[in-house]
Amino acid sequence: MLYAPPIARLVEELSKLPGIGQKTAQRLTFHLLKVPQEEARALAEAIVEAREKVAFCARCFNFAQGELCEFCANPRRDPSLVCVVERPQDIVAVERTGEFRGLYHVLGGAISPIDGIGPEDLKVRELLERVRKDGVSEVIMATNPRVEGEATAAYLAGLLKPLGVKVTRIASGIPVGGDLEYADEITLGRALKGRLEL
């Protein structure tokens, strides 16, 4: 089907988003064409604002509005404890438990040889740097309970332990193959408290 150029452009832009195929992009487009003007404008502005104002924290690579994210900028957080996660949304899951008062380190994914993702594609060098310079006493591995997350934790433990830092892994109890993001706060809280030394 041929659409007028403004419609076709919107369909094309939407279909670039993850998980959105051609059909869904068309459905969203027709929905947006029906909403009030101000609602459409609010969405467009929210996208532009978020993209312009949010960048990555210079220390932990979480989303940040300034140079540092809300955790790294907070003097009441304990900088000697660092919790390593795969993605920024995993921080939200750990925060929900209310069990953690330290800082984070976002790797940007997990090691996966079949996908060609190695340590050089993740914030591994930066983590080692932090541990050497920032007086870190314990690194907690909270990578996802998938095999890639486990292997990443094991790999990092091998690099960190020679630096004289304590390395722990959140206890199991989170379903195998799951995402931290979807673990409930009680389970994840228990997993954090029951962490084991690697």
Partner: peptide, 26 residues
Amino acid sequence: RQRNEAIRAVKRGSGDIGLVRSWNPL
């Protein structure tokens, strides 16, 4: 599959033996 890929990378000369070992406990 992941471990085999890591082994092949070392065989090719582009890998890191530490990456192979990180799959051993799994």
